[in-house]
Design a protein around this nucleic acid. Structure first.
Lengths: 345, 345
DNA sequence: CTGAAAGCGCTTACAG
DNA sequence: CTGAAAGCGCTTACAG
């Protein structure tokens, strides 16, 4: 379409070609008040636009933001992109940002607070207009600091009281699982709870426990095992659960699909058949869950939407509109890994 | 450390504070020829640096690149980030770029050529210094166009003849699988081949077929099923393979772990036990492979390194050094899904 | 060793 | 309706 490397032609070039002043061209091409005041003569405007299109003019964003003090850049920080959950959320962000004519910078922190700090500084030094934070820790003092420094930001996936966030209703998600397992007749359950610094982990666990207890069940503290969110984390946790000879749960709730997959592996090595010997339920309903050799029950969370909403919230913040946290609704998907009535056994 | 939003203090501020000229401060803080000519009096230099650190000075990248015509930004385009393989490669890119003081822009194209074009234009309009292309199509005419427009770029993951790329030796990878399955006694094998426009798919398939034939085996055309790279793609492909009553393969090679997982699901619904009834081998050895209920054999490809090497190559291109494509070595990891001697059956 | 000037490509009051 | 000027924050020859 353009046939030429962007940047080869400037506003000045266009102006010279047309015998106009650069400021006129600028007004026509980028003026916001097109409507008001009739910024330019229709004919001139048309000539300018035609030429711009013809030569493939594309404004220099560096020059523009040097003047406007706005980069139209959104910083995104997540623990890792190799976590499918975050990757999908990022796709939602990317989409929404694109629609709003913003670009995004993503960085990963591996949930390490010092890397978090460093990456944030990098983004700020790049002059992003705002930040979407997907790796907030419950004890996060970084956030207070950002607030103090007047950096516009919103949280995604993980919530922290007092800050705007786009998340799944994790408490409800946990409760749905508790209800399901209870209905299937499970009375001895264990939880692979994830990382204690993540609200997702804490809320899902808490939602589960509280519903289960409401239903009349008991969950000893020892039945809650904190772990990493990945397959190995789940494997290790499940292994320690299943190795306990005093208490053999008939079901395990893992707050994350990958941990659940690891748990399936562990069950396997303990000679347990997932589904009939041991029910397992995951969280997020990633694209793998339904395809596993033994299909995994999981709580579907609207990951794409969470990303999109995060962008919307941040844009609102930048626009100085009032923002309120959004909690999206989860849905339980029951599959073979837990579709078995324990009571009938 | 800084306590202030980057950008609040400029070179001019520093200069004023110290009674120096901005140009002097600039030379001291960013001058490359520090060594040559003794750019500044040691004492002055120290004063400047101390103050800069104290007030948390961070140069405005927009202003800098407006002058230097370099953004220190690398554009990265991949089909999707929700593909673990690409996500991990991106982590490698991010790491290497960070080390070299570059930042990256990632965009996704869903392997759609028109989106590809659009996203590339966005990156170019952002004035990235160069492009890492992870979604090249074998019939890719976009690349010629980029070359013509003198856009610096390298390919990653997928190779195209005539362009510099960082990939796995996919042909070898395929051959390793053929050898393994042959050694296990398999004589009737099928291939879930992936997308025909991706060199990864074509090369892995071709490497497999050619080794298998060299060993004396036969692979009819009908045994090669092209498919999407994800779980559903693999499921559908395996389903069509297993539904064929004329020919029941004893092993399936899927050119991608996710497709392999889908195939496992399909095998399951056909009442086949993966491992003993049907061997399955995947590719990439993603973190899931080893953790699946039935551990998946897979060809390990150095994904992180591929990303890192891609950055190195691109930096070389930007530096106008000669570049040559790099093919990294794959390693076969045998696990339960194919660790069974068919001949002994 | 340091200063002064010009300019990268844009935008935005201010005139006319 | 259009032009001219100033300036965003930096860098880079060029003087001295």
């Amino acid at each position: 379409m353009t046939g030429i490397r962007p940047g080869s032609v400037t506003l000045k070039d266009l102006a010279a070609e047309l015998g106009l002043h650069p400021s006129t061209v600028s007004r026509i091409l980028h003026g916001k008040a097109e409507t008001a005041r009739g910024a330019a003569a229709p004919v001139t405007a048309q000539r300018v636009r035609d030429l711009a299109k013809k030569v493939g003019y594309s404004p220099d964003p560096q020059a523009t933001s040097l003047r406007t003090r706005r980069t139209h850049l959104l910083g995104v920080i997540v623990p890792r992109l190799s976590d499918l959950v975050l990757a999908v959320m990022y796709e939602g962000i990317d989409e929404a940002a694109d629609d709003a004519n913003y670009s995004t910078f993503v960085m990963t922190s591996r949930d390490d607070t010092s890397i978090q700090r460093r990456k944030m500084e990098i983004m700020l030094s790049r002059r992003v207009d705002g930040l979407i934070i997907g790796d907030a820790h419950l004890d996060g003092n970084i956030l207070d600091e950002l607030t103090e420094r007047k950096v516009p930001f919103v949280l995604m996936n993980r919530a922290i009281a007092g800050f705007a966030s786009a998340t799944c209703d994790d408490t409800l998600g946990g409760a749905l699982v508790a209800q399901h397992l209870w209905d299937q007749g499970h009375r001895d359950v264990s939880i692979i709870a994830g990382e204690p610094y993540a609200s997702t982990a804490v809320d899902r666990t808490q939602g589960f426990v509280s519903r289960f207890r409401t239903l009349g069940g008991t969950i000893p503290e020892s039945a809650i095992v904190w772990s990493r969110f990945d397959t190995t984390g789940g494997h290790t946790a499940a292994d320690s659960i299943l190795r306990d000879t005093h208490r053999r749960p008939s079901a395990i709730f893992a707050v994350n699909d990958f941990a659940a997959i690891g748990a399936m592996g562990a069950a396997n090595s303990h000679g347990l058949h997932v589904g009939s010997d041991l029910a397992i339920v995951g969280f997020n309903d990633t694209s793998l869950a339904a395809q596993l050799p033994i299909a995994l029950s999981s709580v579907r969370s609207p990951m794409l939407d969470i990303g999109r909403v995060a962008v919307k919230l941040l844009l609102d913040v930048l626009n100085e509109d009032a923002v309120e946290s959004v909690k999206l609704l989860p849905v339980l998907c029951v599959r073979d890994s837990s579709d078995f009535t324990w009571a009938a056994r």
